Amino acid sequence: MSGGVEWGLHCCVVLSGAGAPVPAAKLAELHDVSQSYLAKQLQLLSRAGLVRSSLGQAGGYVLTRSASEITVLDVIEAIDGAQPAFRCTEVRQRGPLATPAERCDTPCPIARVMAAADRAWRESLRGITIADLVADVSRTTPAEQLDRARAWLRA
């Protein structure tokens, strides 16, 4: 999983409570990350329909729907794509003791295990929304720090 996923999730959490569009430069400064790097992640989120940008002095990024309707998996797939993390290359068909392709009539046991793990991982992340993350951040972050962050975003 790329580092862009982490930044994308953080941005979605921030945008869910911002109350107004937040410029990419402000998000980059808040997270102490390169503006050009973050802009790429925001573009990917935009292409996936999770955020949209508006131009002008009051412009910036906003979520396109409620934080309770955007899952962690949505963000991961927007940034890293939907392909499985593991790709079987049929190792059993290689080397001096290779099994002929015609004898490989069932999926490799390793590929089966990895596919099952990928399905479980995706199902788990499909069940967690940005709103769930926001609630957890609210529970675990001191209120004064959250207030300072909201004020900083408005400034």
Results as ranks from 00 to 15, higher is better:
Ser2His: 09
Ser2Gln: 06
Gly4Tyr: 02
Gly4Phe: 03
Glu6Trp: 05
Gly8Cys: 06
Val14Phe: 04
Leu15Gly: 02
Leu15Ser: 01
Gly19Pro: 04
Gly19Val: 07
Ala20Met: 08
Ala20Glu: 11
Ala20Gln: 13
Val22Asp: 01
Val22Ile: 13
Ser34Val: 05
Ser34Pro: 02
Gln35Asn: 10
Tyr37Ala: 09
Tyr37Ile: 00
Tyr37Ser: 11
Leu38Met: 06
Ala39Asp: 05
Ala39Leu: 07
Gln43Thr: 10
Leu45Met: 14
Ser46Cys: 11
Gly49His: 09
Gly49Asp: 10
Ser53Gly: 14
Ser53Gln: 08
Ser54Trp: 00
Ser54Arg: 07
Gln57Glu: 14
Ala58Phe: 07
Ala58Trp: 01
Gly60Trp: 01
Thr64Asp: 04
Thr64Phe: 00
Arg65Tyr: 02
Ile70Phe: 04
Thr71Val: 08
Asp74Phe: 07
Val75Asp: 03
Ile76Trp: 04
Ile76Glu: 12
Glu77Asn: 10
Ala78Met: 10
Ile79Leu: 08
Asp80Pro: 03
Asp80Ile: 04
Gln83Arg: 15
Gln83Ile: 02
Pro84Cys: 08
Ala85Trp: 12
Arg87Trp: 06
Arg87Pro: 00
Cys88Leu: 07
Thr89Gln: 15
Gly95Tyr: 04
Pro96Val: 06
Pro96Asn: 09
Pro100Arg: 12
Ala101Pro: 00
Glu102Ile: 05
Arg103His: 10
Cys104Phe: 01
Thr106Leu: 13
Thr106Gln: 15
Val113Pro: 00
Val113Phe: 10
Val113Ser: 08
Met114Phe: 12
Ala115His: 12
Ala116Ser: 14
Asp118Val: 03
Trp121Cys: 05
Arg122Ile: 02
Arg122Val: 01
Glu123Gln: 13
Ser124Ala: 13
Gly127Asn: 14
Ile128Phe: 09
Ile128Cys: 05
Ile128Val: 15
Thr129Tyr: 03
Ala131Lys: 09
Val134Gly: 02
Ala135Pro: 00
Val137His: 07
Ser138His: 11
Thr140Ser: 13
Ala143Trp: 03
Glu144Thr: 11
Gln145Cys: 06
Ala149Ser: 06
Ala149Asn: 03
Ala151Met: 12
Trp152Arg: 15
Trp152Asn: 04
Leu153Gln: 06
Arg154Phe: 00
Ala155Tyr: 08
